[in-house]
């Protein structure tokens, strides 16, 4: 159980929950990045077996980087900015318990990256996904989208920056289920509880195995 200015987290039985709360669009702040890492460390100590990550309110899961913060980046500070993002995403990816993203609204730019680094994504009918980086002359989520979707569809989303509504995201496999907004946390928690009910060593091994299954390593024994 903990919080900071933009993040809240707690455990309920075997499930840890993290809420990004930086209204109105839940843009990803340093407090969020720090909060996610602190929460995961606490969950580990508390013996949590699955995690739900969501955004506060019904408007956004996570609006991505704060463009004002980003605008002030210089050649010297951009490295630190990229590293902070990377550490957060890596913390989710390498955490040995699965993380379920409850996508309650917009997941755009760096917010989409955050959702895509989670292990399972469920969405409300208000979920909207957008790889919008290209629209502001940048790029993000190339690696995740190309791994999750293969190149044809990844290129469609990344080159146009278009909005993918919940129903299409479900069809593409980016969301595993879509429910009414009021049912979203129940749905995400049900996924987390199902995961938590399975043998934790097996679940951890499965997450690791799928994470690395498509890595280009030319060892014949892996083919």
């Amino acid at each position: 159980m903990g919080d900071n200015a933009h993040t809240r987290w707690w455990t309920d039985g075997p499930v840890g929950t993290i809420v990004l709360d930086n209204p109105p669009m839940n843009v990803l702040s340093d407090e969020n990045r720090r909060g996610i890492r602190e929460a995961l460390a606490e969950f580990r100590d508390a013996g949590a077996r699955a995690v739900v990550l969501t955004g506060a309110g019904e408007r956004a899961f996570c609006g991505g980087a704060d463009l004002k913060e980003e605008e002030e980046l210089t050649a010297e500070t951009v490295g630190k900015f990229l590293k902070a993002g990377d550490e957060t995403f890596r913390a989710l990816r390498e955490y040995d318990r699965p993380i379920v993203a409850a996508v309650n609204g917009w997941a755009m730019g760096g917010g989409l990256v955050l959702a895509l680094w989670c292990d399972v994504r469920v969405g409300s009918t208000r979920a909207k996904l957008g790889a919008v980086g290209v629209k502001v002359g940048l790029m993000a989520s190339n690696v995740q989208l190309s791994r999750l979707l293969f190149e044809s569809r990844a290129r469609d989303l990344l080159l146009t920056g278009r909005t993918v509504e919940a129903e299409e995201a479900h069809r593409l496999g980016l969301l595993s289920s879509v429910v009414a907004p009021e049912a979203l946390m129940g749905e995400a928690t049900a996924w987390a509880r199902d995961i938590a009910a399975r043998p934790p060593d097996l679940v951890a091994a499965l997450k690791r195995a799928v994470n690395t299954a498509l890595d280009p390593i030319a060892a014949p024994s892996r083919r």
Binding site: V134, K135, G137, S146, R147, E151, A154, L158, D215, P216
Partner: peptide, 22 residues
């Protein structure tokens, strides 16, 4: 209507992903 340098970068990055470690 999109910034051409970003388009070219996306194109290059997507092409490369499958050949590289994450």
């Amino acid at each position: 209507a999109l910034p051409p340098l970003a388009l070219a970068a996306v194109r290059d990055a997507v092409r490369a992903v499958r050949d590289l470690t994450p």
